[in-house]
Design a binder for these strands. Structure first.
Lengths: 355, 355
DNA sequence: ACGGAATGTGACAGCGCTGTCCCCATGACT
DNA sequence: AGTCATGGGGACAGCGCTGTCACATTCCGT
């Protein structure tokens, strides 16, 4: 076979650089790693040789030689297209880059099976640490890895079956703020519209929700707790059903931003139909929430990612066995309104009360 | 020094598995890579040994042995926290995972310097392909890499100084749709509110903008073209300035979603102040744009990412020299309204005309 | 029954780099 | 002079895996 294809020029190796500079392989390595004890002239020669050859060190080989662990951190998340997850990713990435580490992301699409295989792939890639928004219910498979010293951090919800660092939102606190706000405005029939009932975050929020209402002396506080509104459309439907009950709620707490949007749609329809207004508080702030005049439970998503990365790196750097740590990210109620259209409200009165 | 710290148990190697199974290293390798010509019994023995030892293959070493290139694809983007970029990332990641590849993302924060160093780091990591949303104006440094056979794909805007595959939006077409829509509604004084003047996307949009207005016989069509509205707040200010001119525009084309939000804020203020309505069309759709009743130029961001990944992978797989390819993603005008509040419009009339 | 293919397995040499150890010059200090 | 620390540099053995080649066995057709 006559080799017709142009040979894909092999990259110059460190060896080639050393030869060109007239030094040994190891000396070249020293120069390129800024190790001490190299004469300035020698250093210059090597640098020049590397430059002219267009040398790029091979981080794969370097990692292997150093012990087989790469300076990569894996992030297994639900869906990168979701602003919540991508905000986490952004925070993680920012923190990592400060420590010379790179982020490798993988979306599980909330599928436990896929989460498992992605995690495996990342471990095979010998990531230095692993950050996971757990979807699977059991993570005991990771126990071996954690025991072997792999830093694993769970974010947004804790994992079961393994002790590891965890970063979560103060779900209960956030719910309490939201519900108290609605109670203070005089609401007594308050609904909670949630995502997936199995999700830890929802269970937390629902528990707090019921608790606060009970404290306020509301009877049958779980009466308007509904889960299963995974997409915006589901949320719409679920809320419509609630409102069609004989004794409908007057206020809603939406458990995430997709649901909030669904609720806002319903509210717009009601308004168009001349029906009474509904009060709304949403979990998760989102870009134009301000324009829509909706009160939300806000927290720092990017900061949350950053915290997770910090935990991962600190564990990776310290050899000692650290006890699992828990970081709870505080929430803050941003009072704006209930999602009513911002009609003629004088600017000064903005964000003052609920409907 | 008495070694007090618990030795971080080394991971079992393939060699250990082979020994445990009583076969050679290579045979174990064959089994774990599903290579043919291994007797079923032998296979079973190896699998069992791997299982009991908790063996995880080391992808770093495997990549190195295979020729030093990893099955990783790098994505250098502006800011992962921006929904536009994260949608791209999601599309890329989805396509890659279908081909057994993993995505490693890095945010340049739109800083050319940082973009450069991240690109370098990824090349050192020996990614199999590189996808970049270029921020730097010159990418001739990548010429060597491209010549050496590294698949490089530019996304959202083309690069200068190097011939490579590129995926862009049909900016001109999108602008044409938007402007014609406004013209048809009777507007003659139309403004274009843009991001960064140097950005290729803005220059394209501005050129098309001027062109369409000229075709329509509008004099001095660039009169209301303003750039530099990088953040929402800037956009607000820029638009306010425009509206304070003696002969203010009656319609605005916002060049991205942040700007659209800024414009919506201004419109809300005007409405509150009883000033005449302003027509608005935005570039980029965003989650609650529907609720805000705003007409937008929409296109498939996730699909765009997917296309870029396809280009990268096809190039990586084919050894032949492919000529640089250009993919233009079509845009679609989603007519909803001009961002006026959705007051009493009967559902049936929704999204029918402009203000 | 016998050559040749197909099948199953192993030895061994790298992939490109880093860590360890070791050697050779200096220069400083008895 | 003789010793010894110190700076500067190289040889070499891996890191954990895969590719190549060589070898042993079995199976087939004629």
């Amino acid at each position: 076979m006559t080799d017709g294809t142009p040979v894909p020029r092999r990259r110059p190796t460190l060896d080639a650089v050393a030869r060109a500079a007239g030094v040994s392989l190891k000396t070249a390595s020293r120069v390129l790693n800024d190790e001490p004890n190299v004469a300035p002239e020698t250093r210059a020669k090597v640098v020049a040789a590397a430059e002219t050859l267009g040398f790029r060190r091979n981080a794969v080989a370097a990692d292997l030689a150093r012990g087989g662990t790469s300076r990569l951190v894996g992030f297994v998340t639900g869906d990168l297209a979701n602003p919540f997850y991508s905000a986490l990713a952004a925070g993680i990435e920012r923190e990592l880059s400060r420590h010379g580490r790179q982020l490798i992301t993988a979306s599980s699409d909330e599928d436990p099976e896929r989460e498992r295989s992605l995690t495996d792939a990342l471990i095979e890639r010998r990531v230095g640490a692993l950050i996971i928004t757990p979807t699977a219910s059991d993570h005991s498979a990771l126990r071996t890895e954690v025991a072997a010293g792999l830093p694993v951090v769970f974010i947004d919800r804790p994992a079961q079956g393994v002790d590891a660092d965890t970063v979560v939102i103060d779900n209960r606190g956030g719910v309490r703020q939201a519900v108290r706000h609605l109670l203070a405005a005089g609401h007594r029939r308050i609904a909670l519209l949630g995502d997936v009932a199995q999700l830890w975050t929802f269970r937390e929020r629902a528990a707090a929700f019921v608790e606060v209402l009970e404290e306020a002396g509301i009877r049958d506080p779980a009466r308007y707790v509904v889960a299963g509104a995974h997409e915006t459309a589901d949320a719409r439907e679920a809320l419509t059903d609630l409102l069609n009950r004989p004794d409908p709620p007057t206020a809603v707490l939406a458990s995430n931003n997709k649901i909030t949007v669904g609720a806002l749609q319903v509210m717009a329809d009601r308004r168009a139909a001349g029906l009474p207004e509904l009060a709304l508080v949403g979990f998760d702030d989102f870009a134009p929430a301000e324009l829509l005049h909706v009160t939300v439970v806000n927290y720092d998503m990017v900061g949350m990612g950053r915290r997770a990365a910090e935990l991962a790196i600190s564990r990776e750097k310290s050899q000692a066995e650290l006890a699992p740590r828990l970081v709870v990210v505080p929430t803050e109620l941003v009072v704006r309104g209930s999602g009513e259209v911002p009609p003629a409200a004088p600017a000064g009165l903005r964000g003052a009360g609920v409907a």
